[in-house]
């Protein structure tokens, strides 16, 4: 008796109904071999950078420890992938570089999603003059050359963050190593996210605008719900699909921006290193020691591939109509 009661429990019904939509998408995703492969590679790389690297670091493998007697050790001679131009363990350097690259990209994407959903959601839900003014601003910002603006923006923030870092170290006695590591990441992340949310805002606006005309929103309004509640409880959850798709495709493009800026020397600075920085350093030893360039370059390209295939696959799975290009 008691089991039948449990089955008809309303909670159960809601869970089933909610999962079936996503389960459908997952079935479609599973059919897409490339996307699944991309997803698996993404998980492996995330595990390597955020789980394996800290564990190895805790056991005493230091990515920044120099050993000048063992420069350019070959694969397997010292460490797993040998050593770089200063005798540092290449394997650890690539993993820790990946940590920084991915951290910047993921943090910036989270900021992008937050800003984009709030801004685009308001613009789409309110609509009218306010909505179109908000979108004109986005259009104007989109017309600006992205990299140039990001470079300038980063330089401005860097000055302020450096001052704060100095204050934290000198006056509050914080650990200077930790502070400096983060002080270098923050300006780049904010600069990328500060101008990277524009496309997300547009996508969110268009889906919010079409959702806010539907009956369930009217029903919610007739129940006397506040605008904030309608927007964040009823409209935002319904546009999760496009937001997830676009966020997955945003991560690789942010990894790319980070690497580009680091490569020209306007991104990550020592003591941090990222894939872009490692590739730039490795390029100097191109003719004598290919491995120093090849390892970060392969990891970097592999990550971009994996995220892009996963994102494309998610788009095909969650939004079959928009999967043409």
């Amino acid at each position: 008796m008691s089991t039948t009661v449990q089955v008809t429990h309303p909670k159960e019904v809601v869970a089933e109904k909610g999962s079936s939509l996503w389960a459908d998408a997952f079935v479609r995703l599973k059919k897409n071999k490339l996307a699944m492969l991309g997803g698996i590679i993404v998980i492996i790389i995330l595990l390597l950078c955020f789980v394996v690297a800290p564990i190895l670091a805790a056991t005493g493998m230091d990515a920044n420890k120099q050993d000048l007697t063992n420069r350019f050790a070959g694969i397997g001679e010292k460490g797993i992938l040998g050593t770089d131009q200063l005798g540092r363990d290449l394997f650890m350097r690539v993993l820790e570089g990946g940590q920084i690259s991915l951290l910047v990209a993921i943090l910036a994407t989270c900021m992008t999603v937050t800003i984009g959903v709030i801004y685009g959601g308001i613009a789409g839900y309110v609509g009218g003059t306010l909505g179109s003014i908000m979108m004109r601003i986005v259009d104007g910002l989109l017309a600006m050359p992205f990299l140039i603006i990001v470079i300038l923006f980063r330089e401005i923030i860097t000055g302020h963050v450096d001052l704060t870092a100095k204050f934290l170290i000198d006056d509050w006695g914080w650990n200077d190593n930790t502070v400096l590591r983060f002080a270098n990441l923050i300006p780049l992340t904010i600069a990328i996210a500060g101008f990277g949310w524009l496309s997300m805002g547009r996508i969110v606006r268009s889906s919010a605008a079409s959702l806010s005309k539907q009956e369930f929103v009217e029903a919610a309004r007739s129940l006397g719900l506040s605008h904030r509640r309608i927007l964040f409880r009823h409209i935002v959850p319904n546009m999760l699909g496009p937001v997830i798709i676009y966020a997955t495709l945003t991560i690789p493009s942010f990894i790319l921006y980070e690497a580009t800026l680091s490569f020209i020397g306007l991104g990550i600075e020592p003591p941090n290193s990222s894939w872009g920085k490692l590739i730039q350093e490795g390029a100097n030893y191109l003719e004598t020691n290919m491995v120093v360039l090849a390892v970060p370059a392969i990891m970097f390209s592999l990550t971009l591939f994996a995220f892009n295939f996963l994102g494309d696959g998610l788009r095909d799975a969650l939004d079959p109509k928009a999967s043409k290009d």
Partner: peptide, 22 residues
């Protein structure tokens, strides 16, 4: 096409320097 997007200039450039111009 995906390779063209993912294998970016600063990876391709050194490869070309080594494999084409040398």
């Amino acid at each position: 096409a995906m390779a063209g997007i993912c294998i970016v200039a600063f990876v391709l450039g050194p490869i070309f320097q080594l494999s084409i111009s040398r």
